[in-house]
């Protein structure tokens, strides 16, 4: 049976739970399908539903060398109360920060229900020895981060060392303890949809709770077709094993319209069960205010200028 290139010998996917066949992805057809779904016309109450959901699903992110406790404090305030002028707007799902800023973030969001996610494993490149990655993840888990966003080793993946990628995910999963593990594939570096599918299944086999498209440092990032390919991999895993894996597109989602289109993709690929922050997140730094503007517009019928929304 012709499949996508087999995993190297000496590497076996766990037999339980069984994983779906790796298979392949047709570029033209998957892009066409994503484009068709993007043309769904989402209006009025369904648009408000989607926008409200997008806020509840958001991982509000800052991942800059220049991040300081002050910046994190501001981010956390925004996360807990995105629109002070409209208290019906819910909090976001989580803030996503670098390890050094986890303690400040935890302190700020305590009791609010907003989670703290930390990137780890030598984010964004992942180019350090595995034991250092594991140590970093253990430390971040000790600090109390609720969620850990790791990167896969693209160098290993692209040179065919799939076992190394799998093994790292597995060890990181062990080191994360109770924290939720999101595995970033950095799809912009993987080159083909076949690779995106393969990496998704590898990450899920290794124990990922979520698969995530990108670091946000590389373009293209969370395009609709890439998101669709990953959602289809998640669907195949669910159909094969009954296990529900989460999805997080991140990077390049700046407009409410993109968020709504992405939710349509989720709805029509995985169904309504996935329309929850437990199984779907948006990783974004500048999406939130556009969503807030659209919510205000839907409610009042008028657009407000950006000055009416706090920048953080």
């Amino acid at each position: 049976m012709a499949q996508a290139p087999a995993l190297p010998s000496g590497f076996e996917l766990p037999l339980e739970p069984r994983l779906p066949r790796i298979g392949s992805v047709d570029q033209v057809a998957v892009e066409e399908r994503a484009a068709t779904l993007a043309k769904r016309s989402i209006k009025r109450e369904s648009k408000l539903f989607a926008l409200d959901l997008a806020v509840r699903m958001m991982d509000l992110t800052t991942l800059e060398g220049a991040d300081t406790p002050g910046k994190i404090a501001a981010l956390c305030s925004k996360a807990m109360r995105p629109d002070p002028a409209d208290l019906t707007v819910p909090s976001v799902a989580a803030v996503c920060v670098y390890p050094n800023l986890v303690p400040q973030a935890l302190e700020r969001v305590r009791g609010s229900g907003v989670k703290v996610a930390s990137v780890a494993t030598a984010f964004p490149s992942g180019q350090v020895p595995t034991d250092l990655k594991v140590a970093e993840v253990s430390r971040v888990a000790e600090m109390g981060a609720d969620e850990i966003d790791m990167v896969i080793d693209r160098g290993a993946f692209l040179s065919g060392h799939y076992a190394k990628v799998y093994d790292e995910v597995r060890r990181v999963k062990e080191a994360s303890g109770d924290a939720h593990l999101k595995v970033i594939l950095e799809t912009g570096e993987l080159g083909t949809y076949d690779n995106v599918r393969r990496a998704s299944l590898l990450a899920i086999a290794g124990g990922a709770d979520f698969v995530k498209t990108s670091t946000g440092k590389i373009q293209p990032a969370a395009t609709l077709p890439v998101t669709l390919v990953m959602l289809e991999a998640i669907r195949d895993v669910f159909e094969e094993t009954g296990k529900r894996i989460g999805m997080k597109p991140a990077g390049g989602i700046r407009h409410a319209k993109q968020a709504v289109q992405t939710l349509v993709l989720v709805h029509e690929t995985l169904g309504p069960e996935w329309l929850t922050p437990d199984l779907f997140r948006f990783g974004a730094s500048s999406l939130l205010n556009d969503v807030l503007m659209q919510i205000r517009k839907e409610r009042t019928g008028r657009y407000q200028s950006p000055e009416y929304f706090t920048i953080d």
Partner: peptide, 11 residues
């Protein structure tokens, strides 16, 4: 923890 939300009906 996550009850299935109301379906995303398109208006």
């Amino acid at each position: 923890r996550s009850p299935v939300p109301s379906a995303f009906e398109y208006a």
